[in-house]
Design a protein around this nucleic acid. Structure first.
Lengths: 206, 206
DNA sequence: TAGATTGTTAATCGATTAACAATC
DNA sequence: TAGATTGTTAATCGATTAACAATC
C-alpha cells in the first residue's frame, strides 16, 4: 500500500495462493523460496521480492511457514472477507457462474441473478428465481451488494456497468467481450475469454 | 516467425483484432496509429512497433487500411482457418462453452462433448449427445480434431491432457483451476477464472 | 558455531516510449 | 510540393535476475 505494487506482481498473487493451498493440502508446513521456485517455475529472487512487497513473512535460515504465508496471502487478496455478489444476465455464462459452488467456499456469495428477458424472469436457475433487471435500482438500494458479474451481451455491458456504479457497486467482473470503463475507485476485471482462445489459435500455428 | 515475438506483443493481438472489428463495423476504412492510440489507450509507437513485428501493413502519410489490417490480424492469429474442437466435461462450464454460438462464427466448430458420469452420458446438451469418455481414444483415431477444451474437475485435468496429447491433440484450452503441462510443440492456454476474481478482490481492497 | 535461507541492493535484461528520417 | 504518418533507431523505464550481507 505504501509503495505502488506493480501489475506484474499483483497478477502473480493468485498463483502463489493456489500453490500454497496445494502444498498445505499435502501437509507441508515449511517452504523455501528455492523449492517454490522449482515447483512453480518462477525465479527464487522474484518470489522473495514479490513477497517482500507486503512484508517480511520469512525467517532467515528457515524459510516460510506455509500456513502463515497462505493466511497472509489470503489477507492481501482480501479472501479473508466475504462478498455479496449479483449476476447480471441469466444466459449460459451467468448460469455457469451461478452454479459454481467454489465461489461460496472462497467467500463470494451470489445472492441473486437478473435478466431483461421476460421469458427468463421468474424462472428458476440453480435454486434462484431470475429477477427483473427493471428492479435492479431498488434492489441495490435495499441490499448491500459488493460486486457484480456482468454476463450480458456486449451491447449492454457498458450501460449496465454505469448503472451499477452509480448505484454504489465497487467491483465489476465483466464477461462481456468488451472492455468496460469505470471511474477511478471502482475495480474492474475484464475477462475476455475469446482473447485467450485467439492466443491459443496463434500458438497452434507457430 | 523469423525473430521471436514476445508474449507481451502476442497478448495484445486479440485486442487489436477486436478493435479493428469494431471500427470496421462503424464503417471506418482508414486508421492511423495515433487514432488507435487514443481509442485503445495504448502508446502509438507501441502499436506501430507491434504491427511491424509481422510486416509493414501501413503506408507513410496515410495510415493503415482497416480492412486489410483486420484481415492480416485474423491471419496472424490463425482465425482465417477452421478448427475442430471437442469439449471434455459436460458440467456447467462445458455446457456454457458448447452453447456459445460465437465460437462457430470465429472458426471453432465444437463437434462433440465427453463426460465420465454415467448419468450424463447419452443425455442431450445443446443438441449434442454427451459421449462416454471411455470412447475418447477411438473417437480421436477416427476423427481429425484440432483442439480440446478441458472442463473437468482439477484432479483429472493433467491426466486428460496427457491422454489428449498422446492421441495427437495439438492445442488445449484448459478451464480446470490448475496449470496443465504439455510437451513442447503442443499449445496450451490455462484460463484460471478464479485468479481474475482474486485480483478483483485485491483491487476492491486498495 | 556452521549452514541455510531470507531480505535487499546492484546488474542485467527486455519492454515501452520518444524521436526522426524515410516516404507516400 | 507540403503535410502526414509510417517504420525504425535510440533513449528510457521498469521488471527480472544475480549476488551477497544480514541473521536465524
Amino acid at each position: 500500500m505504501s509503495e505502488k505494487i506493480s501489475q506484474a506482481v499483483i497478477r502473480r498473487l493468485p498463483r502463489y495462493y493456489r500453490y500454497l493451498e496445494e502444498v498445505e493440502a499435502k501437509g507441508v508446513d515449511k517452504i523455501s523460496s528455492s523449492r517454490m521456485s522449482t515447483e512453480m517455475g518462477l525465479n527464487a529472487s522474484q518470489i522473495r521480492r514479490d513477497l517482500n512487497c507486503f512484508g517480511g513473512f520469512g525467517q532467515q535460515g528457515y524459510g516460510y511457514s506455509v500456513g502463515k504465508l497462505k493466511k497472509e496471502m489470503a489477507h492481501i487478496l482480501g479472501l479473508d472477507k466475504r462478498y455479496k455478489v449479483i449476476i447480471i444476465g441469466a444466459g449460459r455464462i451467468g448460469h455457469a457462474l451461478l452454479g459454481y459452488k467454489g465461489f461460496m467456499l472462497e467467500g463470494f456469495d451470489v445472492t441473486d441473478i437478473f435478466d431483461a428477458d421476460k421469458g427468463k424472469i421468474g424462472t428458476d436457475i440453480e435454486g434462484k428465481k431470475v429477477l427483473d433487471i427493471n428492479g435492479l435500482d431498488r434492489y441495490l438500494q435495499e441490499n448491500a451488494i459488493d460486486l457484480a458479474m456482468i454476463c450480458t451481451p456486449k451491447e449492454h455491458a457498458q450501460s449496465i456497468a454505469d448503472r451499477l456504479v452509480s448505484l454504489g457497486i465497487r467491483g465489476i467482473w465483466n464477461f462481456a467481450p468488451t472492455d468496460v470503463d469505470v471511474r477511478r475507485g471502482v475495480a474492474v476485471e475484464n475477462v475476455h475469454l475469446s482473447d485467450s482462445l485467439y492466443v491459443l489459435a496463434y500458438k497452434l500455428n507457430q
